[in-house]
Amino acid sequence: MTDPLFPLLYILVFPGFLFLLAYALILEYIDRWITARMQNRVGPPWFQPFADLIKMLSKEVIDPAGIDRRLFDAAPLVALAAVMTAFIYVPVIGSSPFAFEGDIVLVLYLLSIPTIILFLLGWLSRNVYAAMGGIRTVTQLFIYEVPFFLALLTPALMAGSWSISSIVAWQQQHLWCAILQPIGFIVALIGLQAKLERPPFDIPEAETEIVAGPWTELTGRRLAIMHLAVDVSLVVGSGLVAAMFLGGPAFPWSVEPGWLAGLSGLIVFLVKTFCVLFLLSAIKVATGRIRIDQLNDIGWKYIATAALVQVALVLAIQSARVIP
């Protein structure tokens, strides 16, 4: 932290923007490839997400009649900016240098921004499918957000810290939270799947029902940037779950010299996010889309209850002082 250049490099090059953008597209490719292989298809070539991004960026932007153009241009950028900011606090090669007490709350808040933006886009589109999609987006938000937050706060409760990096450090000394809190881990995975609007929670953009939901009127670079924002959310989300439940980038042994420690941390981060992505892809492939009323039932009856049970268990363990 002594070098004044270091924070700038951390934000802009590694593991900030440049690495993040590349990794987001790679993760999208891996997701598409896994899905394709499980569905008995060949799948896209590795550069497909890059090619899609460049193509969409160069396409004409079509304005639906009667929309606020500036707002429509700005909204996807806000979504992308929010999730990219969130990534700064996710430990990648070790503890984040920007970590502070309470950054988990900030990250969770920033991760919700793309969903709100999608609702806004749907509402502003002046299109019946987009409006329906927007309403579904926000309805779904109210269903999964509570269990997701509760599930991600249980490791914080256990570690007695509100900083992601200290929770990672706590897990290094004790055990992975996925082992200590299996229910919370599962709830977090389900919540992440719902947040990313992947099957079975792709209700807001249900293709066969409401065309593309809030995405219907997005074209050209707006679509490209919004798409990128979702890809980055995937990285941030899987990185966050890896940090909170799977011990983050911490390597089990101390490694010398420093650069090797950083490299091993990065490899551990890549492997763990990949594992989370694999689980998410498996859920995506194995399910169809459920209805919003069914999600409402499941979400509040079972998922929220499971999250509450997990919190209660953690509190019980804490008061019994089983783990020092």
Partner: peptide, 15 residues
């Protein structure tokens, strides 16, 4: 299956 977004079954049956 595709109408309910279950594309895996869609791909399998068509294969």
């Amino acid at each position: 299956a595709h109408e309910i977004g279950f594309n895996t079954l869609f791909m399998w049956t068509w294969r």
